[in-house]
Design a protein around this nucleic acid. Structure first.
Lengths: 338, 338
DNA sequence: CTGTTAGCGCATTCAA
DNA sequence: TTGAATGCGCTAACAG
């Protein structure tokens, strides 16, 4: 087989017709005679023709590609987000290009720059935990490049967002612990600035207040979300003179680290300390004890974010930003039932 | 800000020089006067110029993009593969485009077609569990499109592959169980045709034979790798008149399903039945009991596969296919120590 | 219904 | 050291 891909020109030459006719036939243009179209299609098939999307993109100034930026790929939550995005994108004729920021702000900026220069038609972004300023997002707005934020968002920008109801989820989790009789509920959170941390903290506080319980500052701690930091903070909590009888962890991976520490110290879950996570990772029900957690519909979040972005691409003028907040359900398992 | 991205033409116009000079200056061509280059660079900066990669790609017939096809994204193993690929690709100036086949053969073919029409410079592929024929791969070879297979490979093709030593890993796992005193070791495998299943079966059989133990056909079962199938087969094994005293699962997710069934039946691990997995998922040490498993260097596999492909792209003529087999280490934990 | 023509943004050959 | 001209593969006026 000859090197170099087959082009519409090759088809036109073989068939002794013009390349525009071939182009039209391939695009199912209605103005082409059925017979001609069939001949073209047959020849394309025979020559194993694959349209050059690069040339198409240059011509129509659209790549039919969405850019995705997530903090991390090897996380079940973000992987599911991406699955939802990808399935939706394919269904609507789009490809995706994925970058991970590794939770690094500079990397995030660089990822966005890379995707822009690849001329993606729009972006779906979940911010890194380091991201505190947002000129890079403002820059996208200035350049009129459509994008949607999901899960790790920032508020106050005139753009669409998709999140889970973090506050409500945390509220449900905390309320559940209170109803189990827990008196001193610790909240092992992530970086203070992170959107989801602030939202979940609000839910935690709301539940305590509603039940006439004070928010004890020493029970709210902020992890860097590394195994080391998670474990150290757990130990700190256990070292308190007035030890907590429950720990609400910002997410399941953190809860797992907490669990490891508790077990290594011979503490019983939930008898000595109850434990609740957030995310509902697939393994959370295989842990011992099975982990009570707040379910996040990750695939659905991805699906909605993608549909939102694609709607925007279809109708750039009429589009109005939408903020979708999904419900989050508490999954009660053994780690919290006293 | 005006709609439409800035082009080299805009820079040329502003500076009253030709676009070819701008093009050269931007590419650091040595034949450009330093002063001119600096002026161009400054203006590019000022106008917020981003090169149009689409146009470049069309011109030089290279996209600097690698295509990746994996069975599934929401799997820690493949996500780590991809991380390794991506980091390597970026380091060498390439982007990646990712598709998932969802373990479906037709989807896999379609993914490859999509990536080809996006004109990726090369492909990294891990086959779906349904894939039994390989005309679609032969087609790539015929069209001289470079690609590398990793983990889920097929043998006999003149191309590079990266795998872990599946046979050795399974051998180590089985030998370990034998040394723990297990007499009837079941192998809960995946689909019979899958490369990794065949390889791991070979290691399992080798260990048994070396220790003078017969391979009992009723102890080797093939799951479809769904939770349902995994659990049903586990129950079947337990229902045997001559029940196994150990189960070696084809991977960690399967082992987790086995664990759930065993626990639900009140069986003790490892006392009643020892259990070993394969993959070393991050949570495998958080399970109760912690799971003995064979470690797979997923990130490293991705890194090697990407480097192999990129070497090939750098020097298409001189390149010789290489098959890399990584070592796999047995991680002994509690689920197997009698 | 089909052909001719003109770019999309860029790199590169050939001239100057 | 720079400019003019060409074409990558394709789509979309505009003409027949």
């Amino acid at each position: 087989m000859k090197k170099g891909q087959v082009t519409i020109r090759d088809i036109a030459l073989k068939l002794k017709i013009s390349i525009s006719t071939v182009s039209r036939a391939l695009r199912n243009s209605p103005e082409i005679k059925l017979e001609t179209r069939q001949k073209v299609l047959a020849m394309a098939e025979k020559l194993n023709y694959t349209p050059n999307v690069v040339a198409q993109s240059l011509r129509v100034n659209k790549t039919k590609t969405l850019g995705i930026v997530v903090p991390e790929l090897a996380s079940h939550f973000f992987a599911s987000n991406i699955s939802g995005i990808q399935d939706t994108a394919y269904k609507r004729g789009y490809n995706v290009m994925i970058c991970q920021s590794n939770e690094n702000f500079d990397q995030e900026k660089s990822d966005i720059r890379t995707l822009i220069s690849s001329r993606v038609d729009g972006l779906l972004i979940s911010l890194s935990r380091e991201t505190k300023s947002y000129e890079h997002l403002q820059n996208l707005i200035d350049r009129e490049i459509p994008f949607v934020l999901f899960d790790r968002i920032i508020e106050g920008l005139p753009i669409s967002t998709v999140t889970v109801n973090d506050t409500l989820g945390a509220y449900k989790a905390t309320k559940h612990l209170i109803e189990q009789g827990c008196k001193r509920i610790a909240f092992l959170s992530g970086p203070e600035g992170m959107y989801i941390c602030k939202k979940r903290l609000a839910g935690y506080e709301k539940a305590l207040q509603e039940h006439g319980m004070a928010v004890d500052a020493e029970l709210v701690v902020h992890s860097e979300l590394t195994e080391r930091s998670n474990k150290a903070l757990t130990e700190d909590l256990l070292a308190l003179k007035n030890r907590p009888d429950a720990i609400f962890a910002i997410n399941d991976p953190v809860a797992i680290d907490v669990m490891k520490v508790l077990k290594s110290k011979g503490m019983r879950i939930p008898e000595d300390i109850a434990l609740v996570g957030f995310t509902n990772m697939p393994v959370s029900d295989a842990l011992e004890p099975s982990l009570t957690t707040v379910d996040q519909p990750a695939y659905e979040m991805g699906r909605l974010a993608a549909n939102n972005l694609l709607d925007q691409l279809m109708d750039p003028e009429g589009f109005q930003p939408r903020s979708v907040v999904l419900d989050s359900e508490l999954i009660v398992r053994k780690s919290s039932q006293k």
